[in-house]
Design a protein around this nucleic acid. Structure first.
Length: 855
RNA sequence: GGGCGCGUAGCUCAGUGGGAGAGCGCUCGCUUCACACGCGAGAGGUCGCAGGUUCGAAACCCGCCGCGCCCA
């Protein structure tokens, strides 16, 4: 096919032109008839669908796309699906704000409900759970369409026929099926236990969803008294509002200061409750008085003490974060002075934690039990990462997946996995080693995958949590709040001798930890699943190693006994120009669409692909300009090499042509090795570096021969140009897919993205022993001299085409001999009339310009 | 407090034992037959600080300082 090169090549419109062509030709479709060995499967991260994608998404998804395109050109059958993570709290919050509604499960379903045009300014409208879920589905679908449009514009080579959502029927079936399997095998269990709790969202949260925030507080020194001797037992606490929940005082076993108290009981101030004074090695004798109170529950250490010392539970905190009513004087709530306890506690009941803390300090002061003044302190407080108030620990019934029992095996799995970059494995191991409890997966929320579980109700109307009724395989996916278990009628819901559905939904990570199974249709399409699982690579950012990466390994380990993938490719973050993490709360988030419009997709991708694996990278539009320049350069170099090019010969007969191909083979080898090792950035850097050199020196040197009228002269250079451009176009294809496709289409059949990746060995053959004959040195010396000639012209402020009367090159004999091979091109490119060579120790060039012509 | 990473030109970053590098920015020049969205040239650095290993250290080791992230 003769090349068809546009008169004025341009980048404008390439995104639309080629993305629709790729869609039309199913250019990136996974071929499910192919062999398992030829499959390269990617466990694409499903972005959270709440709002919009930002430039950080563009950054990391470009990395994955470059790898996908490379593997495809290597002949692999690439499985590259997209998923949308649309279930969970982020969506609920977005729907609440967007429509001005809130979910109230007690409200009946209204089939005609329409959200108001504008959200109400004051109170959100309470709507039923099914109505709420409908709005969630509606809004996420709109967002997902916008996300897909952006990905297409960016040129992700995703197979859009494989898209899944984490709220979809497929994901629900697979999540529920996996859960039921875990339940059967005893890896999932239900337990009433102290649980991390967010009082605003009123749901359990997991250890992995916590973050520390530094908060001001105050250390209070509070006097307890020994029940028998009346002796002081003074403790320090930041949480005096929990004194009513105190179940023990603790000292370190070696702390002599408190040994007389140990073994006796103490009375709590204000409430007069007897609590034992015990010892535990976790108490820090250096802190405060060395005596601490244990409450149920003030923090996670309290849970440890409560469990290890078999202490009772006294809960004063409700799920809404307010102090509960307490039946003083009944078993468990005994008091030395019941009336005083009632009176004092009456001041606190119903108030929030902060209100109660202020009031109890006044009560303690009034009773003379506060020693000194509260001392301001700043300390790390645990928050749910999406929450606004500190997490509390509240006893509730939750579902757990066993992790503690599998810790050693999970660390071993982490060592089987190949990490890119390798040091990221430390984050995984640190996390697994630091786990303190099993994974709580139930959430008291609405938009998520329900537990496929009902409970029988006995004749007295009590739920039998210990006899859960599991859904059958045929029922999946089920919503136990509308579906009915086998053997029951719908009328029996909530009735004595009837049943009740489990009201909770699964944590969003409990679904997204199954992305390899969901994308591969595990248990649904086993032929497909066996071809793609275990997958080749999990690409993701480093901040979710403890959540997504860890839980995915856990689920595959428990369900399949294997690693879910062989490689983990960890990307960094995009930081703002001040090197701060981009986040919505900081208001420094950059949305990508306008960048794609201003610089073009290839340019934005160039910036993204320049960020090293695992390394945080500053947002830098300047780099996008550089990327655009590179794309334009590829257009123009291709035009030069292809437009009206004379016929090529069958072999490279000129030494410089052989040399440039030999050097290109080295670049191909480096780029290939780097990409094989997931180092897209190095591959791009090496390719780009050589390409600019090639344009600045090789293309300039061969111009004389390229435009020669003698076909014997042009045969070799034509071959070299076509060969090298073909290689460059393919090397750039993973990074600059649009411009690469454009220039490829001028002269080649089919898509460059389905072309075969350049082969370094073939280039070595084509270069025909160039390196052996010193021809690469010839190319080097020739370029060195040309640079000196240019320098002389530039310093004389003359045009580059200005004629040179004489050039004297001083160099070693070997290099002078090599220069002979390139001298023809050199004198043409430099407009040199006479080229002389003088043997010498070191390289030096004298340039004598021809006199400036009279104007 | 522990772990990991980072510190090289004004900026963004390559560089893992022998020569101080690239791009951008800046300055100067050049309508050049692929490209002015271009080309050529130039200025610019105590390689965070201190010590050690070595014939030789930006690189390896130790300590410190600073930044970031994760964990406690």
């Amino acid at each position: 096919m003769p090349p068809s090169v546009p008169e004025r090549p341009t980048l404008d419109g390439l995104e639309d032109k080629w993305s629709s062509a790729w869609e039309r030709d199913s250019a990136y479709a996974f071929d499910r008839t192919a062999d398992r060995e030829g499959v390269f499967a990617i466990d694409t991260p499903p972005p959270t669908v709440s709002g919009s994608l930002h430039v950080g998404h563009v950054f990391s998804y470009t990395h994955t796309d470059a790898i996908a395109r490379f593997r495809r050109m290597r002949g692999m059958n690439v499985f590259y699906p997209m998923g949308w993570d649309d279930n969970g709290l982020p969506t609920e919050r977005r729907v609440q704000n967007f429509y001005g509604v809130r979910c109230d499960p007690s409200v009946p379903y209204d089939p005609d409900f329409k959200p108001p045009e504008k959200p109400p300014e004051k109170e959100p409208i309470p709507i039923s759970r099914p109505n709420f879920v409908e709005l969630c589905l509606q809004l996420t679908e709109t967002d997902e369409q916008a996300f897909e449009a952006l990905w297409r514009r960016l040129g992700l080579s995703v197979d859009w026929s494989m898209t899944y959502t984490t709220i979809g029927q497929l994901a629900q079936r697979i999540s529920q099926r996996s859960f039921l399997g875990l339940l059967r095998r005893g890896e999932a269990y239900q337990l009433e236990a102290p649980t991390l709790w967010d009082v605003d969202f009123q749901t359990a949260v997991a250890q992995a969803e916590l973050e520390d925030r530094e908060r001001p507080g105050a250390m209070h020194r509070v006097r307890f008294r020994s029940a028998d001797s009346g002796e002081d037992a003074v403790i320090d606490t930041t949480r005096p509002e929990l004194i009513a929940a105190c179940v023990a005082l603790l000292a370190h076993p070696d702390d002599a200061r408190h040994s007389r108290l140990v073994g006796a009981d103490a009375l709590t101030p204000l409430f007069g409750t007897r609590v034992p004074v015990l010892t535990h090695p976790l108490v820090d004798p250096e802190k405060g008085t060395g005596l601490v109170m244990v409450c149920t529950f003030g923090d996670v250490t309290d849970v440890v003490w409560w469990r290890e010392l078999s202490l009772p539970v006294r809960s004063v905190l409700g799920p809404d974060g307010r102090l509960l009513g307490v039946p003083w004087g009944t078993p468990g709530w005994e008091s030395a002075d019941v009336d005083a306890a009632r009176a004092n506690y009456g001041e606190l009941e119903g108030s929030t934690i902060n209100q109660a803390r202020r009031r109890i300090v006044e009560l303690l002061q009034g009773a003379g039990e506060l020693v000194g003044e509260p001392e301001p302190v700043s300390r790390a407080v645990k928050f749910f990462e999406k929450g606004d108030r500190p997490v509390e620990i509240i006893t509730s019934r939750q579902w757990f997946i066993r992790t503690m029992a599998h810790r050693d095996a999970l660390i071993e799995r982490g060592r089987e996995l190949k990490w890119h970059p390798p040091y990221m494995r430390a984050r995984y191991e640190d996390w697994v080693e630091g786990l303190s409890g099993d994974w709580c997966i139930s959430r008291q929320r609405f938009f998520g995958v329900p537990f496929p579980i009902w409970y029988p109700i006995d004749e007295h109307g009590n739920l039998r949590h210990d006899e859960p009724i599991a859904a059958s395989e045929e029922q999946l996916p089920v919503d136990p709040s509308t579906n009915v278990p086998d053997g029951y009628d719908a009328e029996q819901r909530g009735q004595p001798n009837g049943f009740a559905g489990d009201p909770d939904v699964m944590d969003t990570w409990a679904t997204s930890s199954l992305t390899p199974q969901i994308a591969g249709h595990a248990g649904e399409d086993e032929e497909l699943y066996r071809k793609v699982f275990p997958m080749d690579v999990r690409p993701q950012a480093h901040d979710i190693i403890r959540t997504w990466l860890f839980t995915t390994i856990l689920r595959s380990h428990l369900d399949e006994g294997v690693l879910p993938w062989r490689n983990a490719a960890i990307s960094g973050w995009v930081l703002d120009p001040d090197r701060k993490k981009m986040s919505k709360s900081k208001g420094n988030v950059v949305t990508p669409m306008h960048l794609l419009e201003e610089y073009g997709a290839d340019a934005v991708r160039y910036w993204a692909a320049s960020g090293r694996p695992g390394t945080d990278t500053a947002f830098d539009p300047q780099q996008m300009k550089v990327g655009r320049r590179l794309a334009v350069k590829l257009l123009n170099a291709s035009k030069f090499a292809l437009a009206d090019l004379p016929a090529e010969g069958t072999s490279l007969t000129h030494p410089l042509d052989r040399a440039v191909i030999a050097r290109l083979s080295t670049v191909v080898r480096e780029a290939t090795d780097s990409l094989e090792d997931y180092d897209y950035a190095r591959a791009l850097e090496r390719t780009e570096d050589f390409f600019w050199w090639y344009c600045d020196f090789y293309l300039e040197l061969v111009k004389g021969r390229r435009y020669d009228s003698n076909p014997d002269v042009t045969a070799s250079v034509s071959l070299a140009l076509r060969l090298s451009l073909s290689v460059f176009q393919r090397l750039f294809a993973p990074f600059l897919p649009f411009v690469a496709e454009e220039v490829w289409s001028w002269w080649q059949q089919g898509s460059v993205h389905r072309a075969s990746w350049p082969d370094a060995d073939e280039l070595v053959v084509a270069a025909a022993g160039s390196a052996r004959n010193g021809e690469e040195i010839a190319l080097e010396v020739t370029a060195d001299v040309l640079r000196e000639v240019r320098k002389a012209k530039s310093q004389a402020r003359r045009p580059m085409r200005a004629p040179v009367r004489r050039v004297v090159v001083r160099d070693t004999a070997q290099r002078l001999q090599a220069l002979e091979l390139g001298s023809g091109d050199l004198v043409a490119a430099g407009a040199i009339e006479q080229l002389d060579r003088v043997e010498g120790e070191s390289f030096a060039v004298e340039v004598e310009l021809a006199p400036e012509p009279a104007r």
